[in-house]
Every structure is written in C-alpha cells, then in structure tokens.
Computed example of a mutant assay.
Amino acid sequence: MALDELKSGLTESETAVKEYVDSTAEYLKLKTFRFAMKVITHSIKGMVFGLIVFIALIFLSIALAFILNSMWESETMGYVAVGLMYIVVGIIVYLMRSRIDSSILKSFSKYYFDD
C-alpha cells in the first residue's frame, strides 16, 4: 500500500517535471524568437536610415568640396580637405571602438533581458 502511494507520487512528480521542462523550453523559444525579431527589425531600420544618411552625406561632402574649391581657387584642394576630414573622423571612430562596442552591447542587452 505504501509502495503504491510512493509510485503514484513519483509518477505525479515526473509528470510535473516534464510539464515544467516543456513549458520552460517553449518560453525560451519564444524569448529567443522575440529577441531575434527585434534584432532583425532594428537592423533593417538601421540599414535603411544609414543608407539615407550616407546618400545625404555624399551630396553634402561634394557640395562642401565645391565650396572649398571656389574659396581657395583650386580645383582639387576642397576634395583633399574633405577627404582628410573623413580620415580624421575615421581615426577618432577607430580609437573609440571599445566605447561603441559597449554601447551596442548594452543596447541589445536591454532588449533581451528587460522583458
């Protein structure tokens, strides 16, 4: 009699553990899917926005080079100055890469862990 009660108790515990594991697995799948969709949608929006800004930056750079060319009465110095400006910006971004990486990590961590 005690053995039958113990068997039924173990069977109920086993069923409860299986249900818990299944529900936890489903929760993790949903959480992973939600995170992946947030990353994908933010990436797509970022790429579209970045493309628009990039095109605008190209036109503004060409306009600035023309202005500098006419100010300095040179056909090339404006382009050289704009190119050097981008090299300086590139060096600054390279030197700040660890700060940029940590801010990106914090941003994506917020989306994954703040649910």
Rank of each mutant, 00 (worst) to 15 (best):
A2Q: 13
A2E: 15
L3T: 11
E5L: 05
E5H: 06
G9V: 02
L10Q: 08
T11F: 08
T11D: 11
E12S: 09
S13F: 04
E14H: 08
E14P: 01
T15G: 09
A16E: 15
K18A: 13
E19G: 10
D22F: 04
T24F: 07
E26Y: 07
E26H: 06
Y27G: 04
Y27V: 01
L28R: 07
K29S: 14
K29C: 07
L30V: 12
K31I: 08
F33E: 12
F33C: 05
R34M: 03
R34F: 06
F35I: 09
A36P: 02
M37P: 00
M37V: 11
K38M: 11
I40R: 01
I40H: 00
I40S: 03
H42L: 11
S43C: 06
I44M: 13
M47R: 05
M47E: 08
V48Q: 14
F49H: 07
L51T: 10
L51E: 09
L51R: 02
I52L: 15
V53I: 13
V53R: 07
I55Y: 13
L57H: 06
L57W: 10
I58F: 07
F59N: 02
L60E: 05
L60G: 03
S61R: 02
A63L: 11
L64Q: 00
I67R: 02
L68Y: 06
L68W: 01
L68C: 08
S70N: 13
M71G: 00
W72Y: 14
W72Q: 10
S74E: 10
E75Y: 07
E75G: 07
T76I: 12
T76R: 08
M77P: 00
G78D: 00
G78R: 02
G78P: 01
Y79K: 04
A81F: 10
V82S: 06
V82C: 06
Y86Q: 03
I87N: 12
V88D: 01
V89K: 10
V89M: 13
V89Y: 13
V89R: 06
V89C: 11
G90D: 07
G90A: 12
I91H: 03
V93E: 04
V93H: 03
Y94P: 02
Y94V: 01
L95D: 03
L95I: 06
L95P: 03
M96E: 12
R97C: 01
R97D: 14
S98W: 02
I100S: 06
I100D: 04
D101H: 14
D101S: 12
D101F: 06
S102G: 00
S102A: 14
S103N: 13
L105V: 13
L105T: 13
S107T: 12
F108V: 01
K110V: 00
K110Q: 03
Y111S: 01
Y112V: 00
F113V: 03
F113R: 08
D115A: 04
D115R: 09
D115Y: 05
D115M: 05
